[in-house]
């Protein structure tokens, strides 16, 4: 555990708190992509299957349970809550996320470090996480004015990915036998997807106006 990894995990946690707060406090999920949230739920389930048979640390296990719980809570609110579900902008959330799932699964079957059931599913979760934000980014472009909480949620998610890259650089330079090419390449692609969003987020923040993605 290093400071970048811890900061990354806490930023990830904070992003989920911000999103849940927006949904619960405003009773609205306007501008939030249910497709992205469902992809994250799939990512967490397939990656954290190891909760059943492996133990790394209490910290890891608790965080896994928290991430799983928050992902399913968010999906529950957006799809089933009697008030919140009516605020979901279905017509703006049209990204074909099934292609992302299928593509990630094919890639995981082709490129993995061990051809076992759990390892392939874990690899699938890495690939799927890399692209899971795409429906949300497309939806932001279509939404026009984006409220602060939704903008901050995506910003925090991007920050978390950036901090993980610093964590890998730190670990690579301090640990022996630390090498995880699949995670690194996917993570760099994932972070790059936020570049455009970051540009407009910081620009609008600088000019002190609400976030609009042209």
């Amino acid at each position: 555990m290093n400071v970048f990894r811890l900061a990354g995990d806490l930023t990830h946690l904070l992003s989920l708190v911000v999103l849940l707060l927006k949904i619960v406090a405003t009773k609205s999920c306007r501008g939030v992509s249910a497709k992205t949230q469902e992809l994250y739920a799939i990512v967490f389930v397939t990656r954290y299957l190891d909760l059943l048979f492996s133990f790394v640390s209490l910290y890891n296990s608790v965080m896994k349970v928290v991430f799983l719980g928050s992902a399913f809570s968010i999906v529950y609110f957006m799809r089933y809550h009697k008030v919140v579900r009516h605020t979901y902008d279905r017509e703006l959330d049209t990204f074909r996320s099934s292609f992302l799932v299928a593509g990630s699964m094919v890639l995981a079957l082709l490129i993995n470090s061990k051809y076992t059931f759990f390892e392939v599913l874990w690899t699938f979760s890495i690939y799927l996480e890399a692209v899971a934000i795409l429906p949300q980014l497309v939806m932001l472009q279509r939404t026009g004015n984006i409220d602060n909480l939704t903008g901050n949620y995506v910003f925090l998610l991007g920050m978390y990915r950036g901090l993980y890259i610093l964590n890998w650089i730190y670990r690579y330079s301090t640990e022996r036998r630390y090498w995880q090419m699949i995670v690194w390449v996917s993570g760099i692609i994932q972070t790059a997807l936020y570049a455009d969003f970051f540009y407009y987020y910081l620009k609008c923040w600088n000019e002190n106006r609400t976030l609009v993605i042209p």
Partner: peptide, 10 residues
């Protein structure tokens, strides 16, 4: 517990 296969990040 079985030690995992090197996936120690979240």
């Amino acid at each position: 517990a079985i030690i995992n296969e090197g996936h120690d990040e979240l």
